[in-house]
Structure formats: C-alpha cells, structure tokens
Amino acid sequence: MNSPVAMVATEADPTPLVLSLARTLRASAQVPELRELVTQTNGAVALRSVTDAQSASLTFDGSSVVVSHGLAEGAEQAELIFEPEYTLGETADPVALAAARLLSPPLPSWRDAAMQFWEVNHGTPGFPTRLVVVCLEEETQEVYGEGEDSYEIHGYGPALAAVLSGQIEHFLYAIAFGVVSTVGSAAHMSVMCGAHWKVRFGA
C-alpha cells in the first residue's frame, strides 16, 4: 500500500486550490478508516467553488488520488464550500460522498498544529525567533523558540488548530475575521501569511 503522502498526487504546476486539497487529502490518508476509503474509491469528482472561480478535480483509481485543476470532463460536479473548509454541497454521487469525507479530516490538536507550524517555518527569513500560541479556553500557552523577536497568536483551540494546520485561504483573513488575534509587527504578519501558506500548500 502507498504511504499517505504517495497516495495523493498533484498535477505539475498546481494551483493553490489543488495544493490545498492535496494537503487536506494527505491529512485524511493518515487516518486508517479514511485511508481505506481512498482504496475503496474509483472515479472522479469535479469540485466547483461556490464563492469564486476556482475549481479542481479529484480522480481516484482504487489506490491513490490525483488532484488537478479545472472540472474534469464527464466527472460528477459538486459544490465546494470553503466555510467550513472543505464542505461539499448536497450530492448522491458515491465518489463525491467519499471526497466529502476525505476533505474533512479530523483537526489535529492545537498543540500538534502549533508545533508543526513552528517546525516547518522557524529559521525562514523574517520568521520570529519566538512564537507564543495562547489557547483561550484552556488559559494556557505554548512557547516555541526564544529571543526578543517574538510573535503571539491567540485563539480558541479549534480555531488555532484550523489556522495553524493550514485552513483558511489567508492568515490575514483569520485575523481580519477574528478567528485568531495576534501581537506583533506588520512585518511579522506578512511573514506569518507566508508561513501559513507553506503549511496550507504542503511545502
């Protein structure tokens, strides 16, 4: 059987949506029952965003899935909803139903997401040397790294887990819509957007 990473492939020169869907599917492939679902699915589904012009197709062959941009010809079409990310519109198509399950993997814990976010990004240009992630309902925090170049991200556990594991198209939106709040500079915010994409796009 393929490794979780190898189970999900993308076309060359993928679009942001393709990369993000692939990252989500890879998260599902880490979960045994969802991993099994990939191996039980054959066929294609074409996903059309309900909010903008983005679209992508998932093609299953019984052992792996390929994500490509655009609406695959002949594939069942389904609405792709970004909030909550990712939800599919009403469908009876079995491939679309499988895709819907695979595109909603369980969230990691906020601590695991924060640790992964730090590990992927620390040391990259402009990234703070110290990251503080504050969970509001637990009234606790995790601190990564050290030094005066510090950035704080505050939020409720599920929101932190979602944002730090790559959900939401832009980190800026997560701040603007109050999903998380932050303490830091404009320069930090810019770098955090890049760091979020690095996780979101599976870099």
Partner: peptide, 10 residues
Amino acid sequence: LGVAFPSWRG
C-alpha cells in the same frame, strides 16, 4: 503579503 520585510519596511 507573505514576504519578509527588508529593513526599510515597517
């Protein structure tokens, strides 16, 4: 967004 600011940006 997403870029590291050079020193002249703040």
